[in-house]
Amino acid sequence: MTAVEVRGLVKTYGSLRAVDGIDLTIEKGEVFSLLGPNGAGKTTTVEILEGHRESDDGSVQVLGFDPAAGGREFRERIGIVLQESAVEPELTVTEVLDVYGDVFPRRRPTGELIELVGLEEKSSARVKTLSGGQQRRLELALGLVGDPDLVFLDEPTTGFDPSARRQAWSIVENLAGLGKTILLTTHYMDEAQFLADRIAVIAAGSIVAEGTPDTLGGREQAEATIRFAIPAGKSISDLPIRPVSTANGMVTISHPEPTRALHQLTSWALDNGVELGALSVQRPTLEDVYLQLVGDENGG
């Protein structure tokens, strides 16, 4: 079963084609991450899926609804976690969850949500007295208050400290475990790597790559990088493989067949009775692949 089905989506603002023919399929129960630089069409795409904007061309189906026309039935089944906390600053945490929760026919109890996001001590504090991170956690709880089938998470952990981030990630993992579908937009590659089943990279209004975190952009076939310190008393010319570069006593080798290269290197080290200090083998990181896909000048 598919949760989201998008074909040939187009949205123009004046002469700018903000979204220029996007196709997307998200399966039920999947954690799908949309990555892309600011202005790439990410937010526009998500807002069309949420029903906040209408598309100019193409077809969109979300949970079997056309989001622009789905109305109340559609909104009863989605949860939106906004990028910016937008709630009445004069109300308390409990009141906000009550007032927004009561509009859903199927809702999660306020106390349970407060516990889930770890705001027990702030439950009767006014929203305007919360720290930025606490407001984001309230935002996360608000996205889940209607027990949605599909959750839109827009930069859910921006401004979190590392432990709050881990906590938020485990909440998202739990949601995925309950069979919820999650559409995540994020700037953090480690977040996408950790949470997403699949990733699509969007640049200049088009999807430029799609895959799992491990295969995105041909990552699994890319050359691996082997790095180690030159053993004492040996020089580069002694090595069985020519290095790509050396700097500060560290050797870097890029190789399409890392298993073979490592075997040669470690055999050489054992035969010569030396240790390859600080040895590491790395695929290009998701961030490397991403920056290459969207062009470094857009990387910010």
């Binding site: 949420e50 906040h52 939106i80 709630v87 927004y100």
Partner: peptide, 17 residues
């Protein structure tokens, strides 16, 4: 002010008519 704060937009994303 509620619109500036994004509250109206949030309300539009909920089932509240």
């Amino acid at each position: 002010i509620s619109r500036d704060n994004g509250i109206l937009k949030r309300v539009r994303g909920t089932p509240l008519p």
